[in-house]
Design a protein around this nucleic acid. Structure first.
Lengths: 345, 345
DNA sequence: GCTTAGCACTCTAAGCACAGGAGTGCTAAC
DNA sequence: GTTAGCACTCCTGTGCTTAGAGTGCTAAGC
């Protein structure tokens, strides 16, 4: 269907979308005519606009208003007409610096980058960290945490740290913990979490008799603790930027919906998981993103990887009227930056 | 000054504040007269109101509107007139259950309680975790995290887990780490973080020669890592509840200010630190809280402790017009719940 | 001397009419 | 196929009016 649009028509569409992105106001034929150097009169533009409206790319809030791009209009613009802006040198530097400051564990790093991404794009930013089950373990340790509690700490290659608390094990001595930890750590070497789990169970069956009961129990307990995958995490930064957008400033109801969605991690997760799988950047416009609460907002997101496996996604959330030409390269760069950062971690 | 108010006057004030809390509308003399069983006519009430206004407890948005309590009015109400509602059995149970679910490390626990507190009070809730320097260590460990990174994990009694990443130490073998960790852990036994730091430096001076260079370097590096106190953390839950309040629904500007403040952890920190010191619950009304950005909101907060030392604060943030009779007991209960939870941790 | 009924007064909120303006669609001429 | 011209629609802002809520003041009553 889109194939039926000639060059002139698409140029008009592009100008309308861009003007609307810039002003957040319905745009009229006069404006577009001027913008195109008066090569076409307003009347001609109006004819074209009528066509575009019929095709579903534009809509009128009311008869005497200008046109506003529909979801489909934005979609077409993004897919076919978008002229990507290249990032400013300074912005790239800033992102690099932010990544450099993410000195702590891996989630510090992703949060730091997300925070800056949010500021540069003037939108709310979201990172998700999927529980990286395919990641190779760096080390594993049982640590005493109070009288009746033991903390199972796992560190994955790349700097992901996870905790699991194990309750009600008062009679393991410090020496026991040392011994078991060393053993666990040895088993963990070069393995992923599920592999370690399997390995422990294996050992437990095979050599159960060889070890004292304490060791057996501790291993079983570790295996159990490793069974519940650490839940993925979601960090949202720059919520306040949402308020900067005029569409939300007016309409408190929409604002409420989106802030509520932010409170529900699962919603955000659903939102980004499609982006995490794919290597390319993804843009979900309005209704497309299938999360009812967020039917009138857009998500621009991309997965980031560690080696071959994807470990999470980073992106921006905002009104459908977003400056995609700027925002898409930003997200893309942030994601690839994270990917490179994890290469030498 | 307040001493000059007779019983009848304060009763009127109380009714005005309570009606305003319930309706968010300026309240008129007629309403109060009815509410007090018509013992006093509206005209009399008006006289009293005029007095209260002169004393600074009430204000009029405009001549023909009813009265609205000022900050001072709320202050007086809270300090002298407040009839605390007792918590519903069910609410207490819910909080207990939430605390029970906080099975993970300590900050999981406080977040869980905070989240529920927020829902029960229908306000945004905030917990701060001050870096607990007086807390006794449970265990300390160096763990390999990638080729060039070492993770220093400290577990404090109560289940507080902290990480510090140490970069650029490729030539420590697994055995080295084992040895040093065991040694560190021994030094840590029963000490607080600053004490451990001091102790390490001590050892380092005294017995430097006795150990191989690797051990010395690793100890020095640990001491260095322990020097930067882990920053305190701030968690805010239930931001969306803020939008429920009519005062914010209308006024986008205020909403913006408060959400912006939420993004700045330091602001929230400043807000709660006075509450953390004291054992009693604290209510900061409007301007009092000295954070310019939040001049028209209230904070109800209380510190929670672990043993004798305070480790953080929990509270609610919302418009000055808050249902204090309900909210104060809630916060109080949540804080004391946390304190008891930490008793047997 | 405190209380209160009565009343004039003030101010807001809501409704309505009206004008101005932006933008459209259609028609007819180029 | 393009465009000037024009009638038409609909929103927006303004001014005006009215109803209502609530006040302050005064004078009468207990």
């Amino acid at each position: 269907m889109a194939s039926g649009m000639d060059d002139r028509t698409t140029r008009v569409l592009r100008h309308i979308v861009e003007d609307y992105i810039a002003t957040a106001e319905p745009v009229g034929s006069r404006t577009i005519s001027k913008k195109m150097g008066q090569a076409l009169s307003p009347a001609t533009i109006r004819n074209i606009m009528a066509d575009l409206e019929e095709a579903g790319f534009l809509a009128q809030p009311h008869t005497s208003a200008g046109r506003v791009p529909t979801g489909a209009g934005f979609r077409y613009y993004i897919d076919h007409l978008l002229a990507r802006q290249s990032l400013a040198r300074g912005e790239m530097d800033q992102l690099h610096r932010a990544a450099g400051e993410g000195n702590g564990p891996a989630d510090e790093l992703v949060r730091q980058v997300s925070r800056l991404l949010s500021n540069l794009a003037r939108q709310a930013s979201v990172v998700v960290v999927s529980s990286p089950e395919q990641q190779v373990l760096s080390s594993v340790r049982l640590m005493r945490a109070g009288v009746e509690r033991i903390l199972l700490v796992t560190v994955l290659r790349g700097g992901w740290v996870q905790h699991r608390l194990i309750e009600g094990e008062p009679d393991l001595t410090g020496d026991d913990l040392e011994k078991i930890s060393a053993y666990l750590n040895e088993l963990a070497e070069g393995r992923t979490l599920p592999q370690l789990r399997a390995r422990i169970l294996d050992e437990l069956g095979k050599e159960k008799a060889r070890y004292d009961r304490v060791m057996g129990r501790a291993l079983a307990m570790s295996a159990r603790a490793l069974t519940d995958a650490a839940p993925g995490e979601v960090f949202i930064e720059g919520r306040a930027n949402i308020l900067e957008q005029p569409e939300f400033a007016e309409d408190v109801h929409r604002l409420k919906r989106i802030l509520r969605a932010f409170e529900e991690k699962s919603v955000i997760f659903r939102l980004l998981d499609r982006a995490m799988e794919s290597r390319a950047i993804q843009v979900f416009v309005g209704l497309e993103n299938s999360v009812e609460e967020l039917s009138d907002i857009s998500v621009v997101a991309s997965g980031y990887r560690q080696g071959a496996s994807s470990v999470g996604g980073i992106g921006l959330i905002g009104p459908v009227r977003m400056d995609y030409s700027r925002v898409i390269p930003l997200v893309e760069y942030a994601a690839s930056l994270l990917t490179t950062m994890f290469e030498d971690r």
